[in-house]
């Protein structure tokens, strides 16, 4: 086993524990946004896709690279944007605020 592979295995195992720990307590209302957020993070495959696409020199690698970059970019961009749209809805609603004008009139 090479040193590099050993290092990678170490990161892998530690990342598993961090992944479990970091979201141990999530309120139900955040389940969907959190899923969407993690979904965007695995769009990191775009790094791999670009590495493949950059060196493309045959018809096969050109097609593979093009499709992989397109799919991965969709994952990253769509993932973060849709998560933000969901979370935008909660903005400013968290702190208890003054009565709305409709209530005040009563």
């Amino acid at each position: 086993m090479t040193n590099e592979l050993l290092n990678e295995l170490t990161f892998f195992v530690l990342a598993i524990f961090v992944g479990f720990e970091v979201i141990s307590k999530v309120p139900t209302i955040l389940h969907t946004p959190l899923m969407s957020g993690t979904n965007a993070i695995h769009g990191i495959i775009l790094v791999g896709a670009i590495l493949i696409a950059a060196g493309a020199d045959s018809p096969v690698t050109i097609i593979l690279g093009l499709v992989a970059v397109t799919l991965a970019t969709t994952n990253v961009v769509g993932g973060f944007v849709v998560t933000d749209r969901m979370l935008e809805m909660f903005k400013g609603r968290q702190p208890p605020k003054a009565p709305t004008p409709a209530e005040a009139k009563k």
């Binding site: 892998f12 990342a15 598993i16 524990f17 992944g19 979904n39």
Partner: peptide, 13 residues
């Protein structure tokens, strides 16, 4: 690292 983070937190979620 990023893939594993998602794999682990996604499983818990």
């Amino acid at each position: 690292v990023a893939g594993t983070l998602v794999g682990a937190s996604g499983s818990l979620l």
